[in-house]
Design a protein around this nucleic acid. Structure first.
Lengths: 243, 243
DNA sequence: TGTGCCCGTGACCATTCGGTGACACTCCCG
DNA sequence: CGGGAGTGTCACCGAATGGTCACGGGCACA
């Protein structure tokens, strides 16, 4: 049963709300998955007739065919790709319904992005019997300027050896910045990536988190060398030092 | 490290109706399990003398030796492989009898295929921890910070030498956490792994068990060093101290 | 039938996080 | 060189979350 590993890190996202879809897609991509997105059940079924993926993220509330029906149809066709349902309601009975439709997991909106990513990882890990258990999507750890960050555990050790317990948001902001070292990341980008959907704090909130990161990881927080301000736009992360 | 042959995902189907057997076998295979089938209790016992599997799907109505008897015999022989009974009748008393014979779950024919597959998955996942405990001596015991836990016996000795009798749930939660030291485990993960897919205690229940584990194993339960809270997500277990 | 153990829940309180506003400061631009 | 927009920084507050306890139901066993 040695299946070519190619499609295992591919994920199909089926979501009609473009905003939510964008957040989900971007975050999955950032985790190292290859992501495709469609906006309806029909499109999903069509896509899956021609392509394979390792996981389907499937909104329950879709126009025309709902998510449950999509999943049932797939299963009847003998397609056993893992499915993670997203639903607006948090009703436990819905969870059972989802599972009985042939799904593998279920998450109620609004969900924590982190929780979502954990589940995606869990499903993929669970399904991969024959792969080593230590598969880690890209970038579980980050090192720069003597700091060491473990994104899996929200934990870090700063240059001076002090252990740091990051909060969820701190960790995610850091991750988003660190994914594109040297590139400019706008505050809006950060909001989208970290808060995901339906919540929009002011951009000042972002500044505050940058402040915290500087305090944690900069030798001289007032003269940042790694969390740089790009005036009028956003921020830029440097691991060592390059203009 | 492509681990092929752990027997966890092997399933033995004991069913004398060839038609039903074929359907069950095929569907299990489609799910990715490795399936063997025999048609009588004797054959099952014989097979199990030489082979191991992660689950036995056992029809109750078999020629000669019935399913209950097969299961009892296995248990007397010290074989603790999980058993899922299939029975023609929906008699609740049968369920009790099945459980008394040492079975793990029970499904009345005719059953929904999805329901069946769900139960299979649930059983395998639930028993995962136990298997890993009883298979390798290493997995059976956990040591950290002067505590010693024997998952097989639900028994432990805490750092101060006090003997602890763990309950089943306590042991399972501890096991799930300890399987991924340093990594975040969400409450939902814990619920699913420990309670199964169709039971829904509140997430507060999880907190309570964490509380108990802390009382048992932390030197200062109010300032946990090993059972750490990850705010907004879940918990994280540390044996000593690692980044 | 009674007793004890588990475990699930609700209540109450403590803590944490994150979002905001205020104020000082910086940078850009005229 | 001065003004205004944008940013650094801080302290604060509300809401959400977790810690902890005590109660009660259910099951098992005597």
């Amino acid at each position: 049963m040695s299946v070519p590993a190619a499609f295992f890190n591919r994920i199909l996202v089926v979501e009609d709300d473009p905003h939510l879809a964008a957040g989900v897609v971007e975050n999955l991509r950032a985790e190292g998955y290859v992501v495709e997105a469609v906006t309806s059940g029909e499109a999903a079924l069509e896509w899956l007739r021609q392509q394979q993926c390792g996981l389907i993220v499937l909104d329950v509330m879709l126009p025309q065919i709902d998510g449950f029906a999509v999943c049932r149809t797939l299963r009847e066709q003998g397609n056993s790709t893992p499915v993670l349902f997203l639903t607006a309601r948090g009703d436990p009975a819905d969870r059972v319904r989802g599972l009985e439709a042939g799904g593998d997991d279920y998450l109620a909106k609004p969900f924590h992005l982190q929780e979502f990513l954990l589940r995606v990882r869990a499903i993929l890990r669970r399904w991969d019997w024959y792969r080593s258990a230590s598969d880690s999507p890209a970038g579980a750890k980050l090192q720069f300027a003597g700091n060491e960050v473990d994104f899996r555990a929200f934990r870090a050790r700063s240059w001076n050896g002090v252990a740091q317990e990051l909060t969820e948001k701190e960790a995610m902001i850091l991750k988003v910045l660190a994914e594109r070292p040297g590139e400019i990341v706008s505050r809006e980008d950060l909001l989208e990536r970290v808060w995901g959907y339906d919540v929009f704090p002011s951009t000042r909130t972002v500044d505050n988190f940058i402040l915290r990161l500087r305090k944690r990881f900069e030798r001289d927080p007032a003269n940042p060398k790694h969390f740089l301000t790009v005036w009028g736009v956003g921020y830029r992360f440097l691991t060592a030092g390059e203009p």
